[in-house]
Amino acid sequence: MIKLLENLGSTVLGGIEQTGRTFNLLLIVLWEIVHSPYKFYPIVRQIYFIGARSMSLIIISGVTIGMVMGLQFYNILERFGSVNLLGAGVALGVIRELGPVITALMVVGRAGSSMCAELGIMRITEQVDALECMAISPVKFLVAPKVIAGLISVPLLTAVFNFVALFGGYFVGVVMFNVPEGSYMNGMIDAVEWDDVQLSLVKSLIFGVLVTLISCAKGFYMHLSKAGSQGAEGVSFVTTDAVVASSIAVLFSDFLIGALMQ
């Protein structure tokens, strides 16, 4: 029993410590952004990595999610004779909720894990130490461009996801089930308001920072965790940890933002 409590306490303390480190990293990133002259090429490179190279994944998942939503909404609405609300249902579901969340989760899986592994490997091969010894801030050089790129890329990817998901819903509703095109489009236009788009934008901005920051923090501070002395196995451990922590942070903050912006 005591052993169980010890383990629980150790896990909670570890979680608090990691949250503190991540918050500390955010403050350093903000400091570096405000106080340093910035070179744009590393940011553009990261936007290409996080944004452009995630595009195909986002398009495929967006179309699929839109089609699934169209199918499910159609089956439900048909029972109540309200298939003319299909466009509204798909649009609100995608823009307010699924668009930002699924996009963020896809970025976690594709780019977040990679960023964490890259920084972890740089840490264990002394590349981060080498930067420090060259009087180059590792946070400015390695982390800040990734966080800025996440802030720019994730909202853009979310917009793409929303667009293709609405197209997927349209395909299922209008092309497959012969829902009148006018009612689908008008229902969508009438139902979606600026507040819904704003909610989607706010969520995607916050998720962009959260995902990149948590992934970077896990890799960057790898040497301070238990995995720090485990070499390659440690990198795999922190990468898994980064994906889990980022995903949970996205889902939990989705609820918080949704509740605050109701």
Partner: peptide, 19 residues
């Protein structure tokens, strides 16, 4: 510390070249 580091060079054991 950064001023000092600009006056020193370090060759790490594994090279630590940026991959």
């Amino acid at each position: 510390v950064n001023s000092l580091r600009k006056q020193m060079g370090v060759a790490f054991q594994g090279g630590a070249l940026f991959s």
